[in-house]
Write a protein that binds this DNA or RNA. Structure first.
Ligand code: MN
Ligand code: MN
Length: 304
DNA sequence: GAACCGA
DNA sequence: TCGGTTCAACGCTTC
DNA sequence: GAAGCG
């Protein structure tokens, strides 16, 4: 194929052009844009349920992981007519027309844009201001290790257990862990943020050397930051089964609490995910089913 | 990566 | 026909 | 009020 020459592919009932399939996006690993497109197209049956009806924010790396990148919120002009979008009017910033993904070809299209990361909203278009889950976002600060992060995740789990709430952890694909706590449909971002803040406050009080809520980066040294502010409209956490623009082409995957406890969280990549899925299946399935009362749990946490 | 705009 | 430009943006916190 | 933060 001549470089830059578009190739028309058929995905399901759609036909769309893809470009620069041989372009190397991960030079350390020899992973090409074509492999990225193949990944997102093939993972669609597993990934799409987690994206359905959720406005998407993309991070695009048209020259690979070491090149310049940018966020993309608005759907590109000139896209295929069958792609669905959703316009949300932000109070301050005005309207944004977001991409939606409801079929495999939509993911093929998105990957062809050079989008490595996909960040879905936690709310759906039917009720954009009602998140379906709280996400406890654990960000290890400089000087904090993976062991520290694991340890704090297990502390979060203890707290969740104490208030009868289930959380489902995933490896971020980089250094952190995201713990998804599904909630009932009447919850607001206020509710989910308050829930994560209550967990963070409790842990920072009991384990001040390990856990911090400090917003200033340089004051977090050696600790794990509980980033409760991710639980707001428009904030972005990389999708489950989404690829990261880092060496190895890691994928953010669900993990078990046991793997976190034993220190056996696997480094899963766009190439190794298929074995992982064959072994453990989709560990995140309950995230879309469970409806928990996080307001009650928050009151319980604040009462401690 | 691709559309848009002005030269 | 080309090259340059654009591609997000908000509420909360601390100073 | 401005800057830092994700
Ligand atoms: Mn994080
Ligand atoms: Mn974060």
């Amino acid at each position: 194929m001549a470089p830059g020459e578009p190739v028309v592919v058929r995905v399901g009932s759609r036909e769309l052009p893809v470009t620069n399939l041989e372009k190397v996006y991960w030079p350390e690993d020899g992973i090409t844009k074509g492999e990225l497109i193949g990944y997102y197209t093939r993972i669609a049956p597993v990934l799409l349920p987690y994206l359905k009806d959720r406005p998407l924010v993309l991070t695009r790396y048209p020259e690979g992981i070491h090149g310049p990148w940018f966020y993309a919120k608005n759907a590109p002009e000139g896209r295929p007519g069958w792609l669905r979008t959703y316009t949300y009017v932000h109070p301050a910033a005005g309207p944004t027309e977001y991409l939606l993904a409801d079929e495999p070809a939509a993911l093929t299209y998105i990957a062809n844009l050079g989008a490595i990361e996909i960040h879905p909203w936690t709310g759906r278009i039917q009720a954009p201001e009602r998140p379906d889950f709280a996400i406890v976002d654990l960000d290890p600060a400089e000087g904090a290790t993976w062991e520290d992060t694991r340890e704090v995740a297990l502390l979060v789990r203890q707290v969740l257990d104490a208030v009868g709430t289930q959380g489902f952890p995933k490896w971020s694909g980089a250094t952190g862990i995201h713990i998804y706590c599904p909630c009932a449909p009447d919850h607001t971002y206020q509710d989910t943020a308050a829930f994560c803040l209550a967990i963070g406050r409790l842990l920072a009080r009991v384990h001040p050397r390990r856990v911090t809520l400090e917003r200033q980066v340089r004051k977090r040294r050696g600790k794990v930051y509980v980033d409760y502010l991710q639980n707001r409209l428009g904030q972005t956490i990389t999708a489950v089964y989404g690829v990261r623009p880092r060496p190895g082409a890691p994928v953010s995957v669900p993990v078990t609490w046991e793997e976190i406890a034993r220190g056996t969280v696997p480094f899963v990549t766009l190439r190794t995910i298929w074995d992982r899925l064959a072994q453990v299946g989709d560990l995140f399935a309950p995230v879309l089913e469970l409806r928990q009362d996080l307001r009650r749990a928050t009151r319980q946490l604040e009462g401690v």
